[in-house]
């Protein structure tokens, strides 16, 4: 790690003034990503601002509109095991528990999870060109080893994927990110938080330097009856997703009233396409309809040397997860697959 100074703050205003809009002043929350990146000299800091004592952002509260507010500093583990989340947003619990390990989930915070960086091997190897780490140096993955890379929304500058599981569920649930900055409060719809790489793959999301995520709001609808999170990876635990799917349905009289499908591991942000969801509206939950929805979601998908398999994998995962959402019991650990 490079040498940096360290300061603890007890409220958001103090954090904002310590950050001072300077990119070399960084927030540390759970530390599970930033400390790793500092060790590799991928991130360099002049000052770490420890926001852990900011107690106003460390809770889960009920909102007047029937939704729930998740504190940015609440840990991933405490969020996944919170009785309200388990009961009303089991899709979110499942997605969080599919990620990382128990120790890491005990440390990781909700705000930090949104801000975690890609796991592209070249991004992690400071001896290779990478536009995300070193803008303008080139992308080593496009012609290189790209098995874990994106099939949707890439640019010729970067084909990295955003690795979070939790955020796939937050995308499906249409969460809102609450932000505080030098100019006051603002919020972003979840779909607007992360961005595609375009010409500036060094920028992962639309949070500005000096801004702080204070909380994440979940709307009332939690799809607690028909939901499923399916994560496909090289080993069955403690591994990032090759492809993951978060699915929620509201079903009335045998037909789909509302559908949500978000994909992880396939793009620079959690991937949602409301056209696929609108297609399923008022239709019966059949294989034919699920297949058609999967086809819409994967429109324009493009593979590279090693990752083209992800297109078919994603299609099958979407269809299978639609069936699993009809019978959420089928996704318990150790349970037999439903198909």
């Amino acid at each position: 790690m490079n040498n940096f100074s360290y300061t603890k703050v007890s409220n958001v205003q103090e954090a904002i003034s310590e950050l001072d809009g300077d990119i070399r002043n960084k927030i540390v929350a759970g530390g599970t990503n930033i400390n790793d990146l500092l060790k590799y000299f991928i991130t360099k800091a002049d000052k770490l601002v420890d926001i852990n004592p900011v107690s106003e952002n460390n809770s889960i509260i009920r909102l007047d509109n029937g939704g729930i507010r998740l504190g940015a500093l609440h840990t991933n583990a405490d969020t996944a095991y919170d009785p309200i989340i388990e009961e009303r947003y089991p899709l979110l619990s499942r997605a969080i528990l599919a990620g990382a390990s128990a120790q890491i989930r005990n440390m990781a915070t909700n705000g930090g999870n949104l801000m975690q960086r890609t796991r592209c091997y070249y991004f992690y190897d400071i001896n290779t060109p990478c536009n995300k780490r070193d803008p303008g140096s080139g992308c080593s993955a496009i012609q290189g080893y790209n098995r874990i890379h994106a099939i949707l929304g890439q640019s010729e500058n970067c084909i990295a994927v955003f690795p979070s599981d939790m955020c796939v569920a937050l995308a499906a649930l249409s969460a809102t990110v609450n932000i505080m900055g030098p100019n006051g409060e603002r919020n972003l719809a979840f779909a607007e938080f992360h961005r595609l790489p375009g010409d500036t793959p060094n920028i992962d999301n639309n949070l500005k330097h000096g801004e702080v995520i204070t909380s994440i709001d979940l709307p009332r609808q939690g799809f607690e009856k028909n939901y499923s999170y399916l994560k496909l990876r090289d080993r069955s635990s403690y591994s990032f997703a090759l492809v993951s799917v978060a699915t929620g349905f509201e079903i009335e009289n045998g037909s789909i009233k509302e559908a949500r499908i978000a994909l992880g591991g396939v793009a620079h942000k959690p991937w949602r396409n409301t056209e696929a969801e609108d297609f399923l509206k008022d239709k019966e939950p059949t294989r034919e309809n699920f297949t058609a929805a999967a086809t819409i979601l994967l429109e324009g998908a493009k593979g590279y040397q090693q990752n083209a398999f992800k297109i078919e994998l994603a299609k099958r995962a979407i269809i299978r997860n639609c069936f699993m959402a009809l019978n959420p019991e089928s996704q318990r650990p150790g349970a037999k697959p439903s198909l």
């Binding site: 540390v28 770490l48 440390m107």
Partner: peptide, 19 residues
């Protein structure tokens, strides 16, 4: 490197002691 901090298991390699 797993240890218990205030009763919870965490990874001491990704934890800054100062925190």
């Amino acid at each position: 490197c797993t240890v218990l901090v205030d009763g919870k298991r965490i990874l001491s390699c990704l934890t800054l002691a100062v925190m």
